[in-house]
């Protein structure tokens, strides 16, 4: 009887010690909160995207871009063991614009320390936010100000991805005298009845090293390449002559299916 009691005590002590060890390990390395940077580095094929420069689409059209904007929302970081950290919803809406460098590098604070190997996000504005009360749409979601040019007032909703430019393949626009193409893609599935749903959730895996988020450390950096030319191909090669404009019509599904694979993590940079 006594022996049993003693062995129980020993066991208990072991458990304590083990736990203590675990705790120590945690406090030493991966507790607390840090920051993560995500850079959206826009590309055109194997070159850095420069508005006004000439590129060629998969179909063979010569293009110059004037606008490349997109919404990123609902960011989730994942670890190798499958656990995830979801950025609080209201801090998770970003509008990246090619003509404004400050919008293309975003910093997420208060991320639990850890090694993150995956990154997922929604291209566009999710349906819940798209139908939210006007008072909850601030910053880049304010239809009058922050979302200016990225909101359809006649078919209420945000433009998820906006690509505009000129191409000899495009028809002549009487107003501007230019041959313009326009791909404005939105549609989140509809408020009261179903419409097209062009929301795309993108899940990316870091090619080699994980992003090591640590408290009181410089933020690790997910460096993404976003290839605008991917919007013109895979699965469908877009001919600008045939489809120079796409807005809220059925063709927008083709455009959205194409741009779903324009994001990759080129590398992760730990400081």
């Amino acid at each position: 009887m006594k022996n049993i009691k003693i062995s129980f005590l020993v066991l208990l002590a072991f458990v304590f010690v083990f736990n203590a060890c675990k705790d120590d390990e945690k406090t030493e390395t991966v507790t607390g909160f840090g920051s993560v940077e995500i850079e959206f580095d826009n590309q055109a094929g194997d070159k850095s995207l420069v508005l006004g420069n000439t590129y060629k689409t998969a179909f063979g059209d010569t293009v110059k871009f004037t606008t490349f904007n997109y919404y990123i929302s609902n960011i989730v970081f994942g670890k190798a063991d499958g656990t995830t950290y979801t950025v609080p919803k209201n801090e998770s809406y970003f509008l990246c614009k090619q003509d404004d460098e400050t919008t293309r590098a975003i910093t997420i604070d208060n991320v639990p320390a850890g090694d993150y190997t995956t990154l997922s996000f929604v291209v566009g504005v999710d349906s819940a936010k798209s139908v939210s009360a006007i008072g909850e749409r601030t910053g880049v979601l304010d239809p009058a100000t922050g979302a200016s040019g990225m909101y359809w007032s006649w078919n209420s909703g945000y433009i998820f991805v906006k690509v505009e430019g000129t191409s000899p393949a495009a028809p002549l626009d009487a107003g501007s005298g230019e041959r313009i193409f326009q791909y404005h893609t939105g549609l989140f599935g509809g408020y009261n009845s179903t419409t097209l749903n062009n929301l795309k959730t993108i899940k990316l895996t870091a090619p080699d090293e994980a992003a090591e988020v640590r408290e009181n450390h410089e933020a690790p950096h997910f460096h993404l390449y976003v290839d605008v030319l991917q919007m013109f191909t895979s699965p469908t090669n877009i001919s600008i002559a045939e489809n120079p404009y796409s807005h809220s019509g059925a063709y927008s599904k083709t455009v959205a299916d194409n741009y779903a694979d324009m994001f990759i993590i080129d590398h992760v940079h730990n400081h």
């Binding site: 139908v131 009360a133 006007i134 009058a144 007032s153 006649w154 078919n155 209420s156 408020y191 009845s193």
Partner: peptide, 12 residues
Amino acid sequence: GGVPNLDLVPLN
């Protein structure tokens, strides 16, 4: 029916 909320009507 393109606008689903009274608050968004004037924007159109």
